[in-house]
């Protein structure tokens, strides 16, 4: 065996650690979830009761699944247009210096640890949301069910909005890359037939790069689905039936915040830890599906 073969085998062995870890993670999580599925049956996925008390144990993760879906949806609904606006501002309206400093600032949003987002969310952002968004909406549109619950600032809306801020760096930077790939000929063509900047962007850039933008949105969604700490500090941490999303202003829970909040309190001899690991498994599946979709789109686009 020559030295290059040794090198190949050595690097192969080290790189295989990732494959091994991934396989182990899947096997271990599935194995650990099985007991609770055996006990609860399919109800584990489609019911809402949650009772870790010994002898009365009942676990249904539907509300937390819906909570993850709802908060991620809010994040995308709010975060994506803002990210798109930033990408436009940087590609169309900024000179080189402004572009440099603004993009550093947007990137720094991604550098802030999520527990600090949570701390800020709990003491600052929550009050802002409560006073300027939730109370007015509740007062004027309180009859509509999504605005009906009494606002506290610790609810699905706060969770979703803090996620919206957190996905801005990734979505805006990918969108920017995609917009910069739009060929000048397309833009010039639209200007040549009398279009203005609006026409160029709406009929040129957006049409040309819609797949790339979709990829960026999915990347943001993937980030939102897996995020834990910030959401766990502002979502209100309801469990069971109460955690079902009835209103934007009701306290809720996501799969990841449930795990963070309850894991250390779970009695190892009950099914409680198994039920929480199952929530992790569902979370993992959601993250993998969304990210695989994003990656397939983005990589096809870049080629």
């Amino acid at each position: 065996m020559n030295e290059d073969e040794v090198f190949y085998l050595f690097s192969l062995a080290v790189a295989s650690i990732s494959l091994l870890l991934l396989a182990l993670i899947l096997v271990v999580l599935v194995q650990y979830t099985l007991p609770v599925i055996k006990e609860m049956g399919f109800d584990y996925f489609i019911t809402s009761s949650w009772n870790p008390v010994f002898g009365k144990e009942k676990y249904g993760i539907l509300p937390y699944f819906l909570g993850t879906v709802l908060t991620s949806f809010i994040a995308v609904l709010v975060g994506v247009p803002i990210s798109f606006g930033i990408a436009l501002f940087l590609t169309e309206y900024s000179n080189k210096t402004l572009k440099k400093y603004l993009s550093i600032m947007i990137d720094l949003l991604a550098a802030i640890p999520s527990v600090i987002y949570g701390l800020w969310g709990f003491f600052v952002f929550r009050n802002f949301i409560l006073d300027y968004i939730e109370k007015p909406l509740h007062n004027y549109f309180g009859k509509i069910s999504i605005f009906s619950a009494t606002p506290t600032g610790l609810d699905f809306l706060s969770g979703g909005l803090i996620l919206a801020i957190m996905i801005i760096p990734i979505v805006s930077s990918v969108t920017r890359e995609v917009l910069e790939l739009v060929p000048t000929e397309i833009k010039e063509g639209i200007y040549a037939i009398g279009g203005n900047r609006y026409d160029v962007i709406v009929y040129g850039s957006i049409r040309y790069s819609k797949n790339g933008i979709l990829g960026a949105i999915l990347l943001g969604l993937g980030r939102a689905v897996g995020e834990t700490m910030a959401v766990s500090m502002v979502i209100g941490n309801a469990t069971g039936e109460n955690a079902l999303p009835r209103s934007l202003f009701s306290a809720g829970q996501t799969l990841s915040s449930l795990i963070a909040n309850e894991f250390n309190e779970a009695n190892p001899t009950s099914l409680h830890p198994n039920a929480l690991v199952g929530a992790g498994l569902v979370l993992l599946m959601m993250a993998i599906v969304v990210n695989l979709g994003a990656r397939a789109i983005v990589s096809k686009y870049k080629r």
């Binding site: 295989s16 991934l22 689905v225 995020e227 993998i288």
Partner: peptide, 18 residues
């Protein structure tokens, strides 16, 4: 292997904790 590095990259960190 490259596929699993990608997936590992995407894992929510709380799942790693579990």
């Amino acid at each position: 292997i490259s596929f699993s590095v990608d997936l590992l990259y995407d894992l929510p960190s709380i799942v790693v904790g579990i």
